[in-house]
Write a protein that binds this DNA or RNA. Sequence first.
DNA 1: CATGGTTTGTTAGTCAAGCTTACGAACGCG
DNA 2: CGCGTTCGTAAGCTTGACTAACAAACCATG
Lengths: 370, 370
Amino acid sequence: MTLLRVTSKALPEHNRRHNRALLLQTLLHDGAMSRADLARESGLTRVTVSDLVNELSSEGLIDELGPREGAHVGKPAQLIGLNVNAYHVVSLDLSGDERFVGALVAIDGTVVHRLDAPVHGATGDDALSTALGLARDLVKRSTVRVLGIGIGTPGVVDGEGIVISAPNLDWAGIDLPQTFGAEFDLPVHVGNDANAAALALHSYHDAGPDFMVIEIEHGAGAGLIIGNALVTGGAFTAGEIGHLVVDPDGEPCVCGRRGCLEQVVAVPHLRERLRRAGAQRRASVLADAGRALGYAVAPVVAALGLEAVVLCGPADLVEGPFLDSAAATVRSLTLAGTGEGLTMSAAGDDHDLVLRGSAVFVLSAELGVS
Amino acid sequence: MTLLRVTSKALPEHNRRHNRALLLQTLLHDGAMSRADLARESGLTRVTVSDLVNELSSEGLIDELGPREGAHVGKPAQLIGLNVNAYHVVSLDLSGDERFVGALVAIDGTVVHRLDAPVHGATGDDALSTALGLARDLVKRSTVRVLGIGIGTPGVVDGEGIVISAPNLDWAGIDLPQTFGAEFDLPVHVGNDANAAALALHSYHDAGPDFMVIEIEHGAGAGLIIGNALVTGGAFTAGEIGHLVVDPDGEPCVCGRRGCLEQVVAVPHLRERLRRAGAQRRASVLADAGRALGYAVAPVVAALGLEAVVLCGPADLVEGPFLDSAAATVRSLTLAGTGEGLTMSAAGDDHDLVLRGSAVFVLSAELGVS
DNA sequence: CATGGTTTGTTAGTCAAGCTTACGAACGCG
DNA sequence: CGCGTTCGTAAGCTTGACTAACAAACCATG
């Protein structure tokens, strides 16, 4: 049952775009195959597929790879493969405290070339020029056509890509698409860093159609994919769980309240508490933090019927007692039927998730692949 | 930014269906207007609109209402109105403990004719035949074409409309579409009762594109609309928050744990606790229950960036201290930026919500209107 | 080794559904 | 009373999917 309200008109050319995207998508996720295979996979006719393949081929997005290996009856199939280097995306990850990271990313999410630039604490226009410089260097470096610029930034980002607020960078109302668009004649797509990570997991790690990723770094944020779609929330604040209060009697937070999730699980606070506790009580401190996270996550898991939650953050903190305790807590708080199918896992400290997810912003908007 | 993975082919006829639905949708929500108005609203050309209008008119779905009142320059516009009685939906609400309620529902959600049948505690095949009988009577009563049968039932319902489990009715793996389809030559669409309520609020009460409705009756369940779409969850368990533990030291629950949300807020338990506490401590008991609900809801509000939460249940319980305390708790636990835009409200004891939402199951699937 | 069955990809033609262009009908206004 | 404006429709175009039919290339088989 698909219950989605119709809100805009449909034209034949939208149709074509959709089917083009469907073929690219199929080639990306299922690998090279023949036109006839594509027809069977997609439900389109061989004729239509041939036509679309010609179009995509003339744009260089796909390649003819020659006949299929192995013995089969009938005329040998000619394999068609996605040319993952037809375009590269200039991706920026602005979530780091110390450095902004940028990369050229291929269509399959491969990081082709990586650069970074120090920021340590720079904010406002300084941070903006650092990001611009990074993009400039990457565009210069690129050996193939650039499809666009994808930016994953901390903070709240609206539907147009304007950063409504990013306290760490002291940004408010920063129009990144305009700023970058003025210098580069390329489409620019911007999103929240945790949302980027969620998209990367969705597109490149088969995380499933419904899951939540929780980023534990300097702060704590979440990204949600529901029904194969990113959840942004009406005011674009979905995933902003850092200042959810998990312990009303906890330590004071910069936001003025006490016991925010960020106070309990964010890396700086957690490391400080571990230091104070000493090696002996390390596991217990981590388990306590995991339990607090579990209390915050359980209602979301139950309400959305989530089957997967992924934790991202420093492996030495996130994996082990922290994850185990969080998972056990969620299971113990949710109904057997709901919590049983739950897989909680750690994606380690994979900073490339944000980079590759930022590329998905662009790939999804420009080519329809994700 | 629309980030939704492409998963199936698009054909020209889907296009047509989509645009038909768009016109119906526009007429439903914005009222009668001329073909030219429809063209402006929808973005389609006047020619295309005229063609679609002819098609819809010949099916009796819309009516020509004559010229528009008032003086305007140019040729007078001929108003076109949705014929909300072109079809009726046979809707069943199986969520009651005492009685199943059924109704003939018009396209605009108006309840045209209502029937009910006692069940008090009947389960299994008995409950099923009661529901079938109700549908039979309603089909007999209908004076206009019946578009289909929509059923809102407690429990977990899969994508095909099969009731995977509904403990109250002692149902497991009950294929309602098949059972009803065998007797009635009509499309049958089945969903969870809380989801039906959510759809009714979405379609007929402008509840917005993202919100959660919490049904507090014999149990406690939630329905979620995210991005104008109903959230079902991978295992169709979204909204099953009744056995979320909100108080690990609370009273034992039938599920074997302690302090489930249902133990705290469900009507029978809440009434019993009020009885024991006496009139004097009534407000305090209600506030306590509201607070517990708030603790469960806050993480969901933060994670999804929700701007609206609606409580449904007996007005004497839900409105007042319960709602106030729940709202205050959610606000106090979520970040200012997130919680500030939050509207928590009570829809009272509007049992028709489930009936009308069950009609939306059918209207949405068959006509594309919601 | 010729023949037949199978699979692939293409060619030719059809159909559906949107679009643009153009026009008659009906109004208010000067 | 003519003029500009708006509405709805008619005619023809374009896009993009479809079906039907076919040539090419392979395997199997007598």
